[in-house]
Design a protein around this nucleic acid. Structure first.
Lengths: 339, 339
DNA sequence: ATCTATTTCGAAAACGTTTTCGTTGCGTTT
DNA sequence: AAACGCAACGAAAACGTTTTCGAAATAGAT
């Protein structure tokens, strides 16, 4: 049972391959009579074009590549969801690669995707990405690149992200307005841009409300913003600052670690200490008490990044000049029981 | 800045394309002298083979396709992790598609992947998949298929799964041996094979310990085994069977819904009612009380399914006869505070 | 009847690689 | 000197499609 090609159809009908191809693609220079015959025979022989040949001929693969730190993460899995759905809607397939937060893997994967001749690339930068030659290589090949979530302002390409500083600012302002004064912050590593920005937002909120910034109230998450980080830091925090009255956590998961420790220690949330997370992971509505947090669009981020990418791909094919877009998606603070 | 081809190297060196190709691929019929010259020039011109041409010529894409119900699920995202890692290690890239538990999408995606000429396909069947012509189409194209997690025994292909019935049986036996007698079961839809098998294990455990099976103790999850299912069913259960002493839940997430309700109602876990989940989602160690559950290998399942698939791909290329493997991965019961 | 315009088709190049097969030139053997 | 073997290379086909261009055929106009 061989796969039928244009040649097979042509032979069956006693016409040329060119005519068959043109008939199938709706070219005007083929008569209705033969077009019908071709269509019929194509259906009869169950013809589907050999994409490998089409790819080679048209120099496009209808495939986009995605590089993310990890798939095993509620946020990224929803982004992937959005990417896949949007890409498929437009007839594109998506190849996913993980950087595991390592620059060398990110570089390697860029090369893999370039070799594969994907039509476009979507990247959420790893935390350890400090140089951008691999990204410039993409541009030099004239294939579109869209950065999302973890973005590099210095790279000339479109991007989709949130305003981490502003989101964090609003969350902390909420706490202040609720009357909390001694607000701790659990943050992630010093090189992660998200963490830097949220930390900035935290500091600015304090400053704008004339609350002195106390560095000893800032705790680093040693692991990978695991929930155990929240648990351990909460323990430390209570020991060092028994009079603390709120915690702003870099992540819902970390916040849930905090809540777990407070629950065990019978520390009342939010009466004694309030807790606020980040991301609006669905578990934040499941935990007791339910967690105040910041809604961060994940599915939409995937959809929009993909939309922009596909637009740029089509633009390049039409030899249009493409202008990059740098989109900031809105975040909203969600008040729940924990604050 | 054009991309260099074999032709470019050949022209620079004044030799033929064939010789360049053979030099690059280490053919014996090219002298060391010219091989060195070719290698040098290739590096100088930054040559990388055009995969589209290679694909067409060799009829393989070094790409595998994956169809899963959803990416947004802790279990599946870890499976994807395993698949991607293993595939990449062997030089393959992976295309991911979602069926959203719909048969027509599953069929559509099989066709997409077949059109893309992927070298092999990995599928976790949707709950609504009742016919298998689309799977047989894959076999008729002579491209390997490996089913994982949601498997169809009637389809002639390799598979990797767990023994749901046995795992459920062991969990319920554990409850019985702990002295629990009135054990409820929260299950998923009637057409999901997982749900059927776990239900069978539940019944068999009761039977083997001469506990009469009471159908009114079995509750269906109306949503999609959401945590709200657990919450709502727990509410119903306590109303209808105030004397229930254990719940065996189809999923950790559902179990966590149960725990939330019990905590709110000050129903002591496990003193009054024990709770057991399924999957060993990491949240089961975070929740209070920590959840007894069944460890279900997810990352490994992805790795092993991919290993088998890639072996079959290589086997077919060497024209070997391939024998299908049907692997059952071990599960282990994990006792925690909730039982 | 010739000329022009239009419709319909096919030949062929092209995409870049892989691989078979033949050719050349050289050295070795009788 | 003829015969043979071998090393080194190139020509060319092939993968299946798309698309340009020219040719043929038909129709219409004068």
């Amino acid at each position: 049972m061989e796969i039928t090609t244009l040649k097979d159809i042509a032979q069956q009908l006693g016409i040329s391959i060119s005519t068959v191809s043109k008939a199938l693609k709706g070219y005007p220079d083929v008569s209705k009579a033969t077009r019908d015959r071709v269509l019929l025979m194509a259906r009869k022989l169950n013809y589907t074009p050999n994409q490998l040949a089409v790819n080679l001929r048209t120099k496009q693969t209808k495939t986009i590549g995605v590089i993310i730190p990890t798939t095993v993460h509620h946020f990224f899995s929803k982004v992937i969801d959005g990417i896949i759905e949007e890409a498929e809607k437009k007839g594109y397939l998506v190849i996913i690669l993980q950087s595991n937060e390592k620059l060398f893997l990110e570089k390697l994967h860029v090369n893999l995707l370039l070799d594969k001749r994907v039509d476009g690339i979507l990247i959420s930068l790893s935390n350890t990405t400090t140089e951008y030659v691999h990204l410039k290589k993409i541009a030099s090949r004239n294939i579109p690149l869209v950065l999302f979530d973890k973005v590099a302002p210095s790279v000339a390409c479109s991007s989709v992200a949130i305003d981490d500083k502003k989101a964090a600012y609003e969350a902390v302002v909420h706490l202040i307005e609720k009357g909390y004064k001694k607000i701790a912050h659990f943050r992630a590593g010093l090189n992660a841009q998200n963490s830097i920005d949220r930390f900035e937002g935290y500091k600015k909120a304090l400053k704008d409300h004339t609350i002195p910034f106390d560095p000893s109230l800032v705790y680093m998450c040693a692991n990978n913003t695991d929930f155990e980080d929240g648990y351990a830091n909460a323990q430390l925090l209570i020991k060092e600052h028994p009079d603390v009255d709120a915690v702003f956590s870099i992540t819902d998961l970390v916040a849930i670690g905090v809540i777990k420790y407070f629950n065990e220690q019978k520390i009342q949330i939010p009466a004694q200490v309030a807790v606020v997370g980040f991301s609006n992971w669905f578990m934040s509505t499941v935990i007791s008490p339910t967690l105040s947090t910041i809604e961060q669009p994940s599915y939409d981020m995937g959809v929009i990044a993909t939309e922009i990418l596909l637009n740029e791909i089509e633009g390049i094919q039409k030899k249009e000049v493409i202008t990059h877009q740098n989109i900031i998606l809105p975040t909203t603070f969600i008040e729940r029981e924990s604050s």
